[in-house]
Amino acid sequence: MSVAPQPKDLTGRLQSLSIRPEQRPGPRRGTGGGWRTALVGVVLGGGLGAAGMWWWHGRRADSPGGEQTAAPRPAEVLATQPATSAGENVLIATGKIVSDHRVNVATKVSGQIVELLVEQGDRVRAGQVIAKLEDVTYRAIYEQTVAMLAKSRASLHNAEWDWERISKLYESGQAPQNEYLNGKHSLDAWKAQVLADEAAMTAAKKRLDDCLVRAPITGVILQKNAEVGDFVAAEGGRGANANAQLVTIADMDKLRVEVDIAEQDIHRIRPGMRCVITPEAHKNRTYQGRVLWIDPLADYAKAAIQVKVRVLQPDEHLRVEGTAKVEFKASPAAGEPAEGSERPMR
């Protein structure tokens, strides 16, 4: 049975295993720390040389007779926008086609429609008759005013003859003053009556003419709101089936596209900017346009600003209330730098 060695014996054994100093190998020459020392010397020498050159040039610049060297001018900081050459898209938005003149044609007199001469989509000219209302009553009123005016004029003619006769008698002393004054009063009254009857006849003639509903502008019929036989009421009056509006007309020669531009992008849009418009109904057709107006008021709910783009040469393929894509082009105006050019930051 073996016995574990004591600590004293273990320490002695470990000491016996150590290598004496005289038996240890010495460092080999040419290797190890020699090259490291040389590298440190080179680095320190280069640093001291650079510091000396900097001190020497600084002393020459500061000396009265030395060569003066201007301090380097700091470089100007430039704000570079995304490069967009002429013809490229600055922004693309979608909006609604709108007519500059859109009119709801309403009747000026109340009555029943006896003729409706247009259909939806028809092109009409200003002054063209588009509907006729029953005019029997209005024509009778007009003829009555004509007769009343004729009667008043006849009475005025008689009053003028009587006044001339009484004036001569009064001047010769053969007529009393009260007869003279009554004659003058009668003459003035019939003159006023003639004026009143003329006004009544004019009003009756206007109501009779309004039985012919005419187009106020040249354009296209967008909507037809009544049919033959319907009763239409003037000035907002409403019966069981009364409707003052007959048709809606839009001027198709002056169209624009209204688009909403995000507030963070509105700085990229300017008045007069060239645009290319593509209607959703005819994607194979494009129209030239210009920025007509930028709304000075923003829409807080949408965080957007409305921009109106004029369609330069509209045709029958465009549809009011239709959708169109608007491409805002980067064609600079005269005297303005192209978008994307560098501008100094202030």
Rank of each mutant, 00 (worst) to 15 (best):
Q6T: 12
R29S: 12
T31E: 08
G32Y: 02
V40E: 09
G41C: 06
G49P: 00
G66L: 01
Q68N: 01
A70N: 11
R73M: 13
E76H: 05
T80M: 08
T80G: 12
T80Y: 04
L91E: 07
S99P: 03
R102Q: 05
A106G: 08
S110R: 13
G111T: 09
I113T: 05
V118R: 04
Q120R: 15
D122Q: 09
Q128E: 06
E134D: 15
D135P: 04
I141C: 07
A147Y: 08
M148L: 13
A154G: 14
R165T: 05
K168S: 13
K168P: 10
K168R: 15
A175F: 02
N182K: 13
G183V: 00
S186I: 03
A189F: 07
K206Q: 14
I217D: 04
L222Q: 01
G239P: 07
A240T: 14
N243L: 12
D253P: 01
Q264E: 03
R274F: 01
E280I: 05
Y287P: 09
G289A: 06
H317V: 07
V320L: 05
K325D: 07
V326A: 12
E327P: 04
K329S: 13
S331Q: 11
G335I: 01
P337C: 02
P344C: 09
P344L: 07
M345R: 15
